[in-house]
Design a protein around this nucleic acid. Structure first.
Lengths: 207, 207, 207, 207
DNA sequence: TATGAATGAGACTTCATTCAT
DNA sequence: AATGAATGAAGTCTCATTCAT
């Protein structure tokens, strides 16, 4: 039998994400992971220095990519063209989460917990996220493109719409027949966000 | 010393919600709960038939109130006055979650998991929610009040904005200085949702 | 079957001492203890808060009794009658160790290790031991009963003779046919210590 | 950078002794040793055929030197000059242990355990030790130099005083400010043993 | 209604060792 | 001679639950 053997470390992580996604971090045992990945239990500690190291790796992996979506679009000319910047960021973040929908769900769920380990890791990422989003919204308001809503409330709304579909993906699938992992979803949902930006956030429509 | 002793059962549930809120269901042990509530371990099994019974109680308690928010507003004259119905429901649901913010967080997080126990309990509630929301949105579209967006996508957006603030409450507190448990938040955030309904969802503004 | 059931906690401790005695603390697993004591594994954590709690209990139990041997004899009239005080203490300590020869061996061995947990527990006992021994020897020297040897060296010699037989008991049994657990040994060995006190420590023999 | 690289095998052994000394054999993992010695884990098995081989090497190394101290002094003219023989042996053994104080502590502690592996290795050494000590004491008694104490008891006393300082070296350091590794200690402590031999063991003082 | 003791299962981690390279 | 990956066994501890009282 030809087994295109994956490097063990990657295999562990992949399997872990799959299981965390369904059962949650605390609901998944390292045994489960080892069995599903068909590797030796001890390898998990060997490669990730214990179960908590797995979660750390998940969080870091996710947020590195997530923050990059924002950085790439906003840093460049965020102050000249806020609405375009914002929309491009949104699009990127949607795609990113869709491509990593298992991981996204795991992360957003664990982030909703108040455990110290999680806090420490994500704190800096969340601060960076705040900084960039605030920057672009502020610029939009100052330039008269965006309505002068209180910024935190705008961002909460935005983030809610951005992340929720991935956190509750299985209900979307089962109840609404919408599949956040598909490219089609990203396109469609993006137009909804576009509408929100144009109608609710912006003062006058683009066209 | 006079101790206004709470009935043990309620005390357990309250403590459990508090702990689930912080550490998650799987991250909380019945020992933790018993110790924090200062009651004997065995009482939990006695009153709730085990740990899983505690979660069941949480879910049911929450969803009974949650669905009622929808039922009360939408069933009555949902077909004559969709936008008003919708807004009143949204307001109620915001208030309800704010008043039960610990419980809300617990529930929305656990609901994001694919465990069988959770599925079985919440299935009927989610179906009822779908039915009612769909009904009011459909009515709005048919009556020309709402734009003809695809209904599922509208509802996803709506639900996202409605629940996310409570799921991630601690970040709102820490990073944005917004406190979802306060009445002030509900008022303010409700006007944001109002804007969304008027600007993005409705064809022409109310005024 | 009538089983004169011992209280579980005492049973665990007894069994633990027996096994630590033979295999050392680190060489003994809680499984071993549970199996030998025929109790459930979890009881060890239940009663002793983990394996290390067992060792703590051993150390404390031993040293409480050990220090008492010194306190009872020396505190009273240590300054009027040093040699008699000393001899009575020695006799008591020999008897005490003989009666608890398993425990003694465990303790003296573990004490020879530099682990933090051990240090913290025994520090105060050793200080008390030092204080009392020093006091009685000093008094003896000042009164002209004892030769003016450097006190620390005297005490080291003394403690060596006092504890070593119990630490290496199995070699005494196998190679020298001497059984430190027997009353006969205590008597005989005590006369040896008496000789040492009279001939080496004291300036002129008692008789 | 020029690193005067030690031969790996010696480096392992040295590191092992250092760690066994502090944490005991069972409390030290081969990982600890490898990390501290900065060598690859597998080398330990390669050179010593497993962890237990390390302990064997320690025991053998130590006892070869230890027994030699006795052999060199006692075999020659043990029967003509017992007291001188004995004293010279004691001096040698003190020096030997002081020079190898880490190893000494390890050995005397492990020897106090009843594990089969240890027994097998040390049995012959202990028998040789018994033979030689017995021989010199017996000769002393027969020649009227030594008092007719029961030989085993004399030897126990002797051995106790000889080994204890090295087994409990850290307490001597911390509590008594005596450092068994220093040459000064050997000198001083030897005079104490001399006193014991002259006053307690011998019938009439040398001078 | 409430309790403390006890339990069996399973959790995570570490261990000493091996093997191909 | 030396290494990094991998392994199976065993380690300690915590879990949710039960039961007699």
């Amino acid at each position: 039998m030809i087994t295109s053997k994956k490097p063990t470390k990657a295999l562990i992580m992949e399997t872990a994400i799959r299981l965390f996604h369904t059962q949650g971090y605390n609901g998944t045992s390292v045994r489960d992971i080892a069995k599903k990945a068909n590797i030796n239990l001890a390898n998990i500690s060997y490669y990730f220095n214990g179960k908590h190291g797995l979660l750390e790796a998940c969080l870091i992996t996710f947020f590195e990519g997530y923050v990059k979506c924002l950085e790439e679009e906003i840093s460049i000319d965020g102050e000249q063209n806020p609405s375009q910047c914002l929309l491009r960021s949104l699009n990127k973040m949607l795609s990113y989460q869709s491509e990593n929908h298992y991981l996204s769900r795991v992360v957003w769920r664990e982030v909703s917990m108040d455990t110290q380990i999680v806090r420490e890791i994500i704190a800096s990422y969340l601060r960076k996220e705040r900084y960039l989003l605030k920057k672009v919204i502020e610029a939009g308001i100052k330039m008269g493109e965006f309505r002068p809503y209180p910024i935190p409330y705008v961002i909460i709304q935005l983030k809610s719409m951005l992340t929720m579909p991935f956190l509750n993906s299985q209900h979307l699938c089962e109840i609404w027949n919408i599949f956040p992992r598909e490219h089609y979803f990203v396109e469609k949902y993006y137009t909804m966000l576009e509408n929100w930006v144009e109608c609710t956030l912006m003062i006058e429509p683009i066209h």
